[in-house]
């Protein structure tokens, strides 16, 4: 197990290292000089001013040095200075992170609760109409682009019925939850199919298992059988898949935040690209890649940790 952990974590660190190089050097290769963007006013572009700005942002140093300075900064929390906002990138990211994480958390609760319930319902009524309906509906929902779902929700529930606000983030906890409801639903709907499918599959395996048959034979009530014998053993694959989907929802916020005008790190990334604000783009991309990789690696290790125990239980 220890050797597996070392191998997996080592592999992850290597991949992250290469990804950091890809992110940094790719953006170095982008055409156009960020300096002229920073100065803005073309009249002020003089050789002295260019040199001063270059020195200010550390752009006068060799590229390789810049990379290692940046990489060192990634660890120490100094992610450079935004060209566009003239603020430390870390300040920008940390101030916008709560919105994004809140959105991901909210969406995760929705898709896990609804997805598991739908998957379980499909498994219990296997081969019947409910089963087909769950599969068809969730597959259809995952074929719809999230921004279209979001705008339809805005139109129906926001503009017409006025149940929910159409954009922005309110003040205070309850108002914020209320403001984040539509964005969270839009983000969650596409993820339902995966989790419902895994829950269905995993539950069916357990429903067919001998120990469930035995529990039924003892005369245990159906809800108790499902809770104590089916779900408890089916959780493994469900949790694994849920964690992977949660991690990838982080990327989905890029689109959803734009739909609902939320200022999280997703819109920070989009604006960063539109204004060629590379320190911001680098930081947000790196943040998302690290979050995604760490989550998937940890889940992978956890699964390996849990797997032998599950295998023993299944054969017993």
């Amino acid at each position: 197990m220890t050797s597996l952990i070392i191998r997996r974590v080592g592999g992850m660190l290597l991949t992250l290292f290469i990804a950091s190089m890809v992110i940094f050097f790719a953006l170095q290769a982008a055409p156009g000089d960020p300096v002229t963007n920073i100065i803005g006013d073309p009249e002020k572009v003089t050789p002295e001013r260019i040199a001063a700005v270059r020195a200010e942002f550390g752009l006068d140093r060799p590229v390789l040095v810049q990379y290692f300075v940046w990489l060192g900064g990634v660890f120490s929390g100094d992610w450079g200075t935004s060209f566009h906002y003239a603020q430390p990138v870390s300040t920008l990211v940390w101030s916008r992170l709560p919105v994004t994480l809140g959105l991901v958390l909210f969406a995760s609760i929705i898709f896990i609760v609804v997805g598991v319930l739908l998957g379980l319902a499909a498994a219990l009524r296997r081969g019947r109409r409910t089963d087909a309906a769950v599969t068809a509906t969730t597959t259809l929902l995952s074929s719809l682009p999230s921004f279209v779902i979001g705008l339809i929700l805005v139109y129906v529930l926001g503009v017409n019925l006025r149940w929910f606000p159409v954009a922005g983030l309110g003040e205070g906890f309850f108002s914020q939850v209320w403001h984040l409801t539509l964005p969270a639903i839009s983000l969650a709907l596409g993820a339902l199919a995966v989790i419902a499918r895994v829950t269905r599959q995993s539950s069916i395996e357990q429903l067919d298992a001998d120990h469930v048959e035995a529990a039924r034979g003892y005369g245990l009530a159906r809800p108790a059988v499902i809770r104590r014998h089916v779900l408890r053993n089916a959780w493994g694959p469900i949790i694994t898949m849920a964690a992977i989907v949660v991690a990838s929802l982080l990327a989905g916020t890029v689109v959803i935040e734009s739909v609902f005008g939320l200022s999280g790190i997703g819109t920070l990334l989009v604006n960063g690209i539109n204004t060629q604000d590379f320190p911001v783009v680098q930081a947000v991309l790196m943040f998302m890649v690290v979050a995604y990789m760490v989550t998937t690696t940890v889940v992978d290790l956890l699964q390996n940790l849990l797997d032998p125990r599950l295998r023993v239980r299944r054969t017993a």
Partner: peptide
């Protein structure tokens, strides 16, 4: 295998977003 590993380290459409950041819209 290495290239796909690195590409799949970017969740969702973020790898594409990076390429667009480099090449422009």
């Amino acid at each position: 295998a290495r290239i796909t590993d690195v590409m799949f380290a970017f969740p969702g459409i973020l790898f594409v977003v990076l390429v667009i950041a480099v090449l422009g819209q």
